[in-house]
Design a protein around this nucleic acid. Structure first.
Lengths: 298, 298
DNA sequence: TTAAAAAATCATTTCCGGTGATAGAAGCAC
DNA sequence: GTGCTTCTATCACCGGAAATGATTTTTTAA
């Protein structure tokens, strides 16, 4: 049974004649006859009484319900893939905690307003986890800190971040090696890009086996840093969000380590859904580095 | 876009591989590849990432929803036409008032119990109207009094009826011509088979231009006959139903006129829906004439 | 690196959807 | 009834594409 046959059958019922259906579908009458006959032989039932206008038999009536639904779904599906089609369905996003807290609320609110039919699912995790999820088709796109994620993934920069060292007390300068040796760090679990920065920072200063506490929650990290438990490395923009609630002091990291770009990881553009398409279009261009303000370096 | 392609696409997603899908659908792997590629080129999007197991892209995910629904509808449609399939949908029946009152309650109750998915629509009317409705595809089947209804309709006898003359007072014998001349008759509007019998009965007795009151309701006819307004011709079985409520007396008509068969009119059996099929199977064989009891000829 | 598995490619066959012309059936006017 | 019109069925044919089997290339796992 071909969708084409159902489409023709439906047209015959709607127009009331084989010839009229042929004209409407821009084909010839003999073709209409052939399709209807094929359906009738496949189903083993007379579907139409050849009169003027055509009479739909009980069996034909049964098929008609299916024909209408199938053809309609078919047309919908095609429309959904035509460029400019209204996006529909779920958009499954992933994000690092820090990006989710700072950048996504505005983005997702605007997206949801603009495309009411789109239902957004957001999952947070480390860059490593999220990239793997995109690769495995479990996420449509993810905000991660990465410069390379294999051939299969397309990375598009969206946010510039400056990483800062966060502490409970003012840091006039980078602590000396001796102090770093006995200072614990607070970070997300393995896979977080910023954690890697901590490790690089300390390795640069020849601090072996640093003590790193793994927290699963951004709030917990910030809270504990503020309470004097240790230091953390976070984007400046994230720290700003917590200044109301916590007493925090920051020190910018050197540009080589501290200037990071948040990218969106997706499969190749050819595999995007309509919803992902409009989402990617809604993303901002990342500001050039010199324009990224290093806010209060309190 | 072919249903076959959607079926193959779905199988690939479900099995996680092109080869496995080919095996499941009893075809070859290159054919699976060709179908998926065709879909991808038609829709202008990558649907699957060729890995092990296959990864569904966001665009593929979108199509998958449609594919599942369309293939499912397709399978349902085929199942519905396969002999022995569960009947579903509406069964649109027509019936003369008299048959509806006497014979249908039992039949339809049993049918509805046996096939809960079947929704029965019943419309009453004269034999003429109903036959035309079946011809026009507005009814699946109709109980009518007719011996011939054109080539297109199949007639199947189901009930034997004996027509009786109904009156308010006992009728020892057929009234004399003089009395018939001044007696009004009560009948359904033009198109009712039994009304034709009245006309034949009176014509036989050379009663010209009989007075016939046209009523649209069986109850009204019986009630008015009982009140002495005039005579009526009805099936004996129908009159029995009203004996509790009305004082009625009956006189059997001569067999030539009075022995009538109620038939079910349908389009040819090849055009029956599954629901009509089981309905027709549920109909009784008509009793032979000699077995039809002429009940109390009170 | 190698071996095994899976998908892509290709040549070939087969089948079928689409076309146009024609024949036949049904409806309508006279 | 006759003739005219309209509609559907039939037929032969073309072209495209679905299916097949063999082979190559890619991917994955050991």
């Amino acid at each position: 049974m071909l969708i084409r046959s159902l489409e023709i059958f439906r047209a015959v019922v709607d127009t009331g004649s084989f010839s009229a259906a042929a004209e409407r579908l821009h084909t010839v009458q003999s073709n209409v006859t052939a399709h209807v006959k094929k359906l009738e032989s496949e189903l083993g039932a007379h579907l139409l009484e050849r009169r003027s206008p055509v009479v739909v038999t009980p069996a034909g009536r049964q098929l008609l319900g299916y024909a209408r639904r199938i053809v309609e779904l078919h047309d919908d599906a095609l429309a959904r893939f035509r460029p400019g089609g209204e996006p529909l369905g779920e958009l499954r996003l992933g994000s690092m905690e820090t990006t989710a807290a700072v950048h996504l609320p505005g983005l997702l609110t605007a997206l949801s307003r603009r495309w009411p039919q789109l239902s957004v699912h957001l999952r947070t995790g480390t860059s490593g986890e999220l990239i793997e999820a995109v690769r495995a088709g479990q996420l449509d796109a993810a905000f991660v800190a990465a410069e390379d994620a294999g051939d299969e993934l397309a990375l598009r920069p969206v946010f510039r971040e400056r990483l800062v060292l966060v502490s409970a007390r003012p840091l006039p300068a980078m602590p000396a090696r001796a102090e770093l040796l006995r200072t614990p760090f607070l970070a997300f679990r393995q896979g977080c890009g910023y954690r890697r920065t901590i490790e690089l920072l300390l390795a640069e200063r020849r601090v072996p086996a640093p003590r790193i506490h793994e927290f699963g929650s951004l709030d917990a990290i910030v809270g504990c840093v503020s309470a004097g438990m240790g230091l953390a490395v976070l984007p400046a923009s994230t720290v700003e969000q917590y200044r109301q609630r916590f007493e925090l002091h920051t020190l910018p990291l050197p540009a080589a380590l501290g200037d990071v770009t948040t990218v969106v990881a997706t499969l190749s553009a050819a595999s995007w859904s309509q919803g992902l398409e409009v989402f990617m279009e809604s993303l901002p261009e990342p500001a050039p580095w010199d324009a990224a303000p290093a806010r209060r370096a309190g």
